[in-house]
Simulated assay, not measured.
Amino acid sequence: MTSDAFSSGDIAALPRAEFAFPGPLRDQLVAAVLDGAKTSTTGLVADYEHENEPLPSVGSRSAVVDSDDRRVAVIEVTEVRVVPLAQVDFAHVVDEGEGDTSIAGWRANHEGFWHGEEMRAALGDPEFTVDDETLVVLERFRLVARLDPAG
């Protein structure tokens, strides 16, 4: 982690990095970011398209938010790849910091999330499903700074 200093205005201007939905899973993922175990994440191209958001770009920074909507860290994107789900590699799986020990286990966990009611609602598609050809965004990042959520 670098010693970059941020003013409250700088932090407020950063886009938000939201891992999962508020609740236990987000809390687990944010803790993994803060302790350095999580240095990659996977998103659905369909989600970016639905939200009309550009894909992440190398060098961009964002503020990680916790389940209480507090900005708790700043991360910087170091790599972005778009691949079919079937091409996710084991190094990416491990770097997600979620404890998965196989690509199959990782995929089952992610498909459970993507096929969940919250994700289907967020995509506006109650029948949404993924398969080997579903395009995913593999993002690597580095922790730039931990923030005091109390302000």
Rank of each mutant, 00 (worst) to 15 (best):
residue 59 G to S: 07
residue 68 D to K: 12
residue 90 F to Y: 15
residue 128 F to W: 13
residue 105 G to V: 09
residue 126 P to T: 07
residue 64 V to F: 08
residue 126 P to I: 06
residue 139 E to F: 02
residue 143 L to C: 04
residue 107 R to Y: 00
residue 73 A to L: 03
residue 136 V to A: 06
residue 102 S to L: 08
residue 118 E to T: 12
residue 122 A to F: 09
residue 72 V to Q: 00
residue 88 V to A: 01
residue 70 R to K: 12
residue 121 A to C: 08
residue 127 E to T: 14
residue 116 G to L: 01
residue 133 E to H: 14
residue 76 E to F: 07
residue 140 R to A: 11
residue 126 P to A: 11
residue 145 A to S: 13
residue 119 M to V: 11
residue 108 A to L: 12
residue 100 D to A: 13
residue 89 D to T: 14
residue 101 T to G: 13
residue 59 G to R: 06
residue 71 R to N: 04
residue 93 V to H: 00
residue 90 F to M: 15
residue 111 E to L: 14
residue 60 S to R: 13
residue 99 G to K: 07
residue 81 R to K: 12
residue 86 A to W: 09
residue 116 G to M: 00
residue 96 E to D: 09
residue 131 D to T: 05
residue 140 R to L: 09
residue 81 R to W: 06
residue 99 G to H: 07
residue 79 E to A: 15
residue 76 E to G: 09
residue 91 A to L: 13
residue 142 R to L: 01
residue 87 Q to A: 15
residue 112 G to F: 00
residue 129 T to C: 08
residue 78 T to R: 08
residue 114 W to P: 01
residue 131 D to S: 12
residue 127 E to A: 13
residue 116 G to K: 00
residue 71 R to T: 03
residue 118 E to Q: 13
residue 120 R to H: 03
residue 138 L to N: 03
residue 105 G to I: 06
residue 124 G to L: 07
residue 127 E to M: 09
